[in-house]
């Protein structure tokens, strides 16, 4: 039973990992841009969450709403003011730009908050648990998985059904031809980056509610995001979700067997999947 509980807990954590990857994968799927800033931005969003929680009405969990809204704006400005200037065939300028921004962001946070560990206080919720089919589960991890699932499903539906979602998909297919229909693809890219950053920010806040973070956590977060996206098969929504679950389960099962292994087995699992199916889970299904 203890193993079942570990696996279920791994899935709960994995849903959140999937959300960490979603922002990165979404931006890449649409613009073919790897925004390296997103790892450190996840941490910055967590700091923003810490700052805003005291002013959040009803319940601290709702802090994700203002953080997402602000991050949406930051993402749009980042794209419109900076990344749109380095668009082109060559991916190196984009990576250099976002890498540089990530360094500025990280050191700015160290300067402001020091290297100490922080966490977002959600009060009682953090310690509440319930019994389910003989399993003892935490309420917060279940709620977080619910939020992750809702965001995946919501984004999927919005992309399928809405007018803007359709325009974003068309722009992702062929941004040059989209212009012939009067679409300013640079503006569309801004909206897509805003959504990507908002998703990353929500993931960052939820991570900070479940555990703790320091200004240096960005690199780990970015690595998880990359692994989720690559395991999932670039640009596939539900592949990414499965990728997150695989990482989460592997990590918790491995920690049970070898408590000092940290994230090592998760990374090894990533390498194994990459070895078996270079196109990730989506690639496996397509084959």
């Amino acid at each position: 039973m203890i193993w079942v509980e570990t696996i279920v807990n791994g899935m709960l954590l994995g849903g959140l990992y999937a959300l960490v990857g979603l922002g990165l994968g979404y931006a890449f799927g649409i613009m073919k841009i790897v925004n390296v800033t997103q790892g450190d931005f996840i941490v910055a969003a967590a700091f923003l969450g810490v700052f805003l929680v005291p002013w959040t009405p009803v319940h601290p969990l709702l802090v994700i709403v203002p953080v997402a809204a602000i991050s949406f704006g930051v993402g749009i400005l980042l794209q419109w003011l900076l990344i749109n200037r380095v668009l082109g065939q060559d991916p190196i300028p984009q990576i250099l730009l976002t890498f540089g921004l990530a360094i500025v962001l990280r050191n700015g946070m160290v300067e402001l908050y020091g290297a100490n560990s922080h966490s977002i206080d959600v009060g009682e919720l953090r310690f509440m648990g319930f019994d389910f089919l003989g399993l003892r589960l935490g309420v917060l991890p279940v709620v977080i998985l619910g939020i992750a699932l809702a965001l995946f499903a919501g984004l999927h539906l919005w992309m399928r059904r809405s007018r803007m979602g359709r325009i974003i998909r068309a722009t992702a297919d062929d941004h040059q031809v989209a212009q012939l229909s009067g679409i300013n693809y640079r503006r569309v890219y801004g909206i897509a980056m805003g959504i990507a950053m908002a998703l990353s920010a929500v993931a960052g806040v939820l991570l900070a509610m479940r555990g703790s973070f320091t200004p240096y956590s960005g690199a780990d977060r970015l690595l998880i995001a990359f692994e989720v996206v690559v395991i999932g098969g670039l640009g596939s929504f539900w592949g990414m979700f499965a990728g997150g679950i695989i990482l989460g389960v592997t990590q918790l099962v491995a920690l049970k067997l070898d408590p000092s292994s940290g994230l090592m087995w998760g990374h090894l699992m990533f390498l194994l999947i990459l070895f078996l199916s270079p196109n990730g889970i989506a690639g496996m299904v397509r084959r």
């Binding site: 359709r166 998909r169 068309a170 992702a172 297919d173 062929d174 040059q176 031809v177 989209a178 212009q179 012939l180 229909s181 009067g182 679409i183 300013n184 693809y185």
Partner: peptide
């Protein structure tokens, strides 16, 4: 820019059709 020209009333059927393949 091309998008502004399209909104003003001139557009093109591009060579090779170039549909939005996933739509």
């Amino acid at each position: 820019r091309a998008d502004r020209i399209a909104r003003a009333g001139m557009t093109m059927v591009p060579e090779g059709r170039r549909l939005f393949g996933s739509l």
